[in-house]
Amino acid sequence: MANKNDYKNNQNVESPEIIAAKLTLLGSTLSTIGDGLQAIAAGITLQELVNPSKQNSQNNSHQSDQSKQIERLQKQVDQLMRQVQRGNWL
Results as ranks from 00 to 15, higher is better:
residue 1 M to G: 05
residue 1 M to C: 06
residue 1 M to R: 07
residue 1 M to S: 09
residue 3 N to D: 10
residue 5 N to D: 05
residue 6 D to I: 10
residue 7 Y to M: 05
residue 8 K to F: 08
residue 11 Q to D: 09
residue 11 Q to E: 12
residue 11 Q to I: 15
residue 12 N to D: 14
residue 12 N to K: 15
residue 12 N to Q: 15
residue 13 V to D: 11
residue 13 V to N: 11
residue 14 E to P: 02
residue 15 S to K: 15
residue 15 S to T: 15
residue 16 P to L: 12
residue 16 P to F: 10
residue 16 P to S: 14
residue 17 E to T: 09
residue 17 E to Y: 06
residue 18 I to D: 04
residue 18 I to W: 02
residue 19 I to H: 06
residue 19 I to R: 10
residue 19 I to K: 11
residue 19 I to C: 03
residue 20 A to S: 09
residue 20 A to E: 12
residue 20 A to W: 01
residue 21 A to N: 12
residue 21 A to L: 10
residue 21 A to D: 14
residue 22 K to E: 08
residue 23 L to Y: 06
residue 23 L to S: 07
residue 24 T to H: 08
residue 24 T to W: 05
residue 27 G to H: 01
residue 28 S to Y: 04
residue 28 S to R: 10
residue 28 S to C: 02
residue 29 T to E: 15
residue 30 L to F: 07
residue 30 L to Y: 06
residue 32 T to C: 00
residue 32 T to I: 00
residue 32 T to S: 04
residue 32 T to M: 00
residue 33 I to L: 04
residue 36 G to S: 03
residue 36 G to D: 02
residue 36 G to L: 03
residue 37 L to F: 04
residue 37 L to S: 04
residue 38 Q to N: 14
residue 38 Q to P: 00
residue 39 A to K: 13
residue 39 A to I: 03
residue 40 I to L: 10
residue 40 I to A: 10
residue 41 A to F: 12
residue 41 A to H: 11
residue 43 G to Q: 08
residue 44 I to D: 04
residue 45 T to A: 12
residue 46 L to D: 00
residue 47 Q to V: 09
residue 47 Q to S: 01
residue 48 E to K: 11
residue 48 E to T: 12
residue 48 E to I: 13
residue 49 L to V: 10
residue 49 L to S: 13
residue 49 L to E: 15
residue 50 V to A: 11
residue 50 V to L: 11
residue 51 N to T: 12
residue 52 P to K: 05
residue 52 P to M: 03
residue 52 P to L: 04
residue 53 S to A: 09
residue 57 S to A: 13
residue 57 S to T: 15
residue 57 S to I: 13
residue 59 N to G: 01
residue 59 N to D: 13
residue 60 N to M: 13
residue 61 S to P: 01
residue 61 S to W: 01
residue 61 S to K: 10
residue 62 H to Q: 15
residue 64 S to H: 14
residue 66 Q to F: 10
residue 66 Q to E: 11
residue 66 Q to V: 10
residue 67 S to P: 01
residue 67 S to C: 06
residue 69 Q to A: 13
residue 69 Q to C: 02
residue 71 E to C: 04
residue 71 E to I: 08
residue 71 E to G: 06
residue 71 E to A: 15
residue 71 E to R: 12
residue 72 R to T: 00
residue 73 L to T: 09
residue 74 Q to L: 05
residue 75 K to I: 02
residue 75 K to L: 02
residue 76 Q to L: 10
residue 77 V to H: 01
residue 77 V to F: 00
residue 78 D to L: 03
residue 78 D to Q: 05
residue 78 D to S: 07
residue 79 Q to D: 13
residue 79 Q to K: 13
residue 79 Q to C: 05
residue 80 L to I: 01
residue 80 L to K: 06
residue 81 M to L: 09
residue 83 Q to R: 14
residue 84 V to F: 01
residue 84 V to Q: 04
residue 85 Q to R: 11
residue 86 R to G: 03
residue 86 R to T: 06
residue 88 N to K: 14
residue 88 N to C: 02
residue 89 W to E: 02
residue 89 W to L: 00
residue 90 L to R: 14
